[in-house]
Amino acid sequence: MLSIKDLHVSVAGKPIVNGIDLEIKAGEVHAIMGPNGSGKSTLAHVLAGRSGYEVTRGTVTYMGKDLLALSPDERAHEGVFLAFQYPVEIPGVNNIYMLKAGLNAIRRHHGEEELDAVDFLSLVREKMKIVDMDESLMSRSVNEGFSGGEKKRNEIFQMAVLEPRLAVLDETDSGLDIDALKIVAGGVNKLRNKDRAIILVTHYQRLLDYIVPDKVHVLAHGRIQRTGDKSLALELEKHGYGWIESKAGAA
């Protein structure tokens, strides 16, 4: 589904991603771990199409298309979703309105009929259950005044409504207490299916106890230094990133 080849990215003239290769098939869950500043969010933003990131080399192919040629909204229409590490507060723009506009744009793109207000609301009610979302949050402005945990839940709730093919979850577990983590992880598991690929960016092995990944990649200095299965995350937990870095240095 997603094929990243030799990806190099600079931000403000500074190389941040220095040659990433990654293949993800439909139905797979890949975890990406790595120290602060290693380029995880940069990769996530490049996949979602944020401006300010210059791809200096390499390709990203998504469902046979050149992903990098699409605008952020076109990517969303094609089924790419980013759960933000820091969800943006947008005062005055209603959560429900944004989601309805987004979902209907996606539906139009696929030649499907738009949902009317009634159908949309019943869809929303059903999806809220997935992350145990408080209904009162829905009528508020996008993320405005939400607690850290509510923001992260809202991201997964939006994912549930928009039903992406490729979801990139950037540290969705950070800032969650253990109960919220279980709920959010449970939500992600419910959204796991054979047609959907998920990239989980995380610092914490504990998330992977709940969402068991098919693969774990360790990113440092803008490159994938190691790839393995779940046990790689356990090893990281034991030895810390220094262990990878020294290996990378030795290689």
Partner: peptide
């Protein structure tokens, strides 16, 4: 950041700008 967030949800750029201006 707000424009990008809205677009990442499928809202096109013109609508995102209008939504923010209206708000």
């Amino acid at each position: 950041d707000a424009i990008f967030y809205l677009r990442s949800r499928g809202v096109d750029e013109a609508l995102a700008r209008n939504l923010l201006t209206f708000a």
